[in-house]
């Protein structure tokens, strides 16, 4: 069991919405509009975060951008090192991603291993023209040479801390918090 201990509020609800709008603008600017974009959200918070960014894109450009969800469990590099097999989540990519610019969305960028797995999974689904990475928080401590293209906030952290991203559409309220977690022996 994990127990979360609240340390500090990093982004408040208003700031969160402003960050989403900025990320949407940056994506549209750098990718030259929404025409060739496909959003893929990672489980579990990347997918609802992608939905929120798409809402901002729609406000700005009035287009519907296709969205899919990706579960990378089967591509993880720690599968043989875990005590128990992880329960799989839904992968639902209903559109063709070949030739598209895929905007990969996750809430927190940390070691980079999940993104590595996600890129392998994506390439097995089709051959995208480009993959761009959006994250709400980059907390550092990378294990792999991976870097985000669009970052909500860069937040230096210590290893004992964790970042908790809350979303209105699943948690009831937007916000980013720094928390410390201690493993509770059961």
């Amino acid at each position: 069991m994990k127990k979360e201990k609240y340390l500090a509020e990093i982004i408040d609800p208003n700031g969160f919405q402003r960050t989403l709008r900025r990320l949407a603008s940056e994506i549209l600017e750098q990718c030259g509009g929404a025409g060739n974009l496909v959003f893929i959200g990672l489980h579990t918070r990347g997918f609802p975060l992608a939905k929120r960014i798409i809402e901002c894109v729609k406000t700005e450009e009035n287009v519907d951008v296709p969205i899919g969800s990706l579960d990378v469990t089967l591509y993880r590099d720690d599968i043989n090192h875990r005590a128990e097999s992880l329960q799989m989540q839904v992968t639902d990519v209903p559109m063709d991603i070949a030739g598209k610019t895929v905007i990969l969305v996750d809430d927190v960028l940390y070691t980079g291993r999940t993104i590595r797995a996600a890129m392998d999974a994506l390439i097995d689904l089709g051959r995208p023209a480009k993959i761009r990475l959006v994250v709400m928080i980059d907390r550092g401590h990378r294990d792999l040479p991976i870097k985000a293209d669009f970052i909500g906030k860069y937040l230096p952290t210590s290893l004992g801390e964790e970042v908790s991203v809350k979303l209105k559409n699943i948690d009831g309220e937007d916000g980013v918090y720094l928390v410390s977690t201690e493993r509770e022996e059961t």
Binding site: T73, Y75, I79, M88, V90, T91, D120, D124, L125, G126
Partner: peptide
């Protein structure tokens, strides 16, 4: 979940 995997263009994963 694996049925979905089998419907992918490359119906193979590196898991095992």
């Amino acid at each position: 979940s694996f049925k979905e995997v089998l419907s992918r263009p490359i119906p193979k994963v590196p898991t095992l």
